[in-house]
Amino acid sequence: MLDIMLPHYGELTLLKIAVESIAAQTDERWQLTVMDDNPVERDTGIPEYFAALGHPRVRYLRNPRNLGVTGNFQQGVDLATAPFMIIMGCDDVMLPRYVERVHALIDAHPEAVLVQPGVEVIGADGAVVRTLADTTKRRVYAPRFAGTVTMAGEELAVSLLRGNWLYFPSLVWRTEEIKAVGFDPDLKVIQDLKLILQLVTRGGTLVADDDVVFQYRRHGESLSASSAVTGNRFSEAREFFLAAAARMDAHGWPRAGRAARWHLSSRIHALTMLPAAARQRSTGSVRVLTRYAFGNPRPR
Rank of each mutant, 00 (worst) to 15 (best):
Q116K: 14
A127M: 09
V149E: 04
V149A: 04
G126M: 11
A133W: 09
D134H: 11
P110D: 09
Q116G: 09
G147A: 04
P143E: 09
P117N: 00
F145C: 04
R130K: 13
V113S: 11
A133E: 11
R138N: 09
T150A: 07
V129E: 08
T136D: 09
V129N: 03
V140I: 15
T150N: 04
D125Y: 07
Q116E: 15
V121A: 08
D125A: 13
P143Y: 02
G123M: 09
A112E: 07
V149S: 03
L132T: 10
K137V: 05
R130S: 15
V121I: 15
L132A: 14
P110S: 14
G147K: 04
P143Q: 08
D134M: 01
V129M: 06
E120R: 15
R144Q: 14
V119Y: 02
L114P: 07
E120S: 13
V113N: 07
R144K: 15
E111V: 06
E111T: 06
V128D: 08
E111P: 01
L114R: 10
E120Q: 13
V121T: 14
T148W: 02
A127W: 08
T136F: 04
A124L: 14
H109G: 06
R144E: 12
Q116C: 06
A108M: 08
V129L: 00
E111K: 07
P110G: 11
G147C: 03
P117F: 00
A108K: 13
P143M: 02
L132Y: 11
Y141D: 04
L132W: 11
V149H: 02
T148E: 07
V140C: 10
G147H: 06
H109P: 08
A133M: 12
L132Q: 11
G126H: 11
P110Y: 05
A142L: 03
Y141H: 10
M151W: 04
V115I: 13
V129S: 01
V115L: 05
